[in-house]
Simulated scan of single mutants.
Amino acid sequence: MSDRGLPDPATLEADAPAYYRRTGPTTFRPTLRAQGAWQPGEQHMAALTGLLTSAVLQHEPGPELQPARLTFEILGLIPALETTVTVRTLRPGRTIELVGADAEVAGRPVVRARVWRLATVDTAEVAGGAGAPLPAPQELPPADPSRYWPGGFIASLDVRAERAPGEGRNRAWLRARPALVADEEVADLARLMGLVDAANGLGCRVDPRRWMFPNTDLTVHLHRLPTGDRLGLDTEQVVGPTGLGLTSSVLHDRHGPVGRAEQVLTVRRLPAATG
């Protein structure tokens, strides 16, 4: 164990079929597939986002209520250790409901999620305005983000992308090769929300070998539920002059746009890249 509470990555299960293995009713053990990119003993926020989303969807489910906004606050380093996920209804309602989900590691909160669920009605008659779909996955070339990013999570992805990272804009399709939780079926929304956080690395405008730009949050707004196993990203990144940045993405499935995602960044030069 490091002095920052991060485990030796050699202790993580390699070649696992999933990002997590369930160890109890509310506990999960991350595998090497969930390994983060910034620290080798850390969980990737994307994988944990999927796990929290799955927990929310299983909490008092009702087809009449649909997730509309999902916000994830990152409270610090996320060690790749057994993780406890708890869910509760914060604001019950028949048409508007707020659900909270929290992830803890070693008794310390690491991510706090809040999900607004809204009642569904038939608005097909007036639906529109979402914008054009992305090029189909087969129309974009295969990409290997492991050339720029370390970590088991990044290595687990099937990626097709228009550009290499570093230009500040990208269009890409992602698919997770492993399951989210071993031997468990999860909803398409949970599987795809487990990919959104990767937008920050695919659409970056600075070299991740010289700069750090971790996000402190992830907020997703949806106008319809995504389906399938591929997430499309139309992403751009802005870096301001005082160490703050913003990664903004339009999210797609094969049928077109489904919503938007925003990530606030803290940008700083890596110590080895100074001078």
Rank of each mutant, 00 (worst) to 15 (best):
T23K: 02
R209A: 15
G36A: 08
R268K: 12
A164W: 04
A46T: 02
R268T: 13
T71Q: 12
A143W: 06
M193Y: 01
H44T: 05
S2G: 07
E42L: 03
T27P: 03
F72V: 12
L32Q: 14
D183P: 06
A14F: 00
G5K: 05
Y19D: 15
V159Y: 00
R114H: 14
I96D: 07
L195C: 07
M45N: 08
R269Y: 03
Y20G: 07
T227S: 11
D183Q: 09
I78D: 00
G50M: 00
L90F: 05
V159K: 01
G151H: 00
G201F: 00
L244W: 10
P63M: 08
P257N: 09
A106T: 15
G152W: 00
L98A: 13
L195I: 08
L270G: 07
D188T: 11
A80K: 01
T49D: 09
R160E: 04
E97A: 14
D15Q: 10
D3P: 15
G50Q: 00
A127E: 15
G259N: 06
W211S: 01
D253G: 10
V186Q: 12
P17D: 12
P7G: 06
R260M: 14
A37M: 09
A161K: 03
T95S: 15
E73P: 02
T123Q: 10
A127I: 13
Y19I: 02
A68V: 13
A68P: 00
L246Y: 09
G152C: 05
R230C: 08
R94M: 11
P271I: 09
V99G: 04
T84P: 00
H223P: 06
L222W: 03
L244G: 13
A130N: 10
P142F: 03
A68E: 07
G129W: 03
E104Q: 12
L244A: 15
P165N: 05
G166V: 03
T84M: 07
L32C: 05
R210L: 12
V181T: 09
A18V: 11
